[in-house]
Amino acid sequence: MTDPRNPDSASQAIEMDPVEYTLRKRLPRKLPKRRNDVYVNMKTDFRAQLARCQKLLEGGAHREICVHGLGLAINRAINIALQLQASSQGALQLAANTSTVELVDDLEPEDPDEAGEPMTRTRNNSAIHIKVFTEFPTPAKG
């Protein structure tokens, strides 16, 4: 497991009334991308994402790729990784890691003059990082 960041438990306990606040979710924090990082989402077609991974692996430039999935997309990330492995006839291996990602929500008061400050709250979501690599060469850089 990776670093468990301890969330501020105090700020979690805000009771919010949905009538008085508007919830706006910020995007999850972007991570920098190497060429062989694939971030899986739920909007793009599954086959397209699978094809992209296959292209990366078959292109020969990369021995390993990392498939990342957050929240709802974890399922799909696992699915992609397994499909890759299945279609490679045993040449590819997987190494999965999970982590927790901190997400930020903005709460905007409906009546901004009286309710005071817009609040931000953080919540956690799970993420998965699957390393897909060919077997024989030892994983580089490890």
């Binding site: 497991m1 990776t2 920098p32 890691n97 982590s99 993420a127 990082h129 390393k131």
Partner: peptide, 16 residues
């Protein structure tokens, strides 16, 4: 600027 920093971060995530 944070290329190095994030390399580190990814190692945290991927390799543990």
């Amino acid at each position: 600027f944070l290329r190095l920093f994030h390399r580190v971060h990814i190692w945290f995530c991927v390799l543990g």
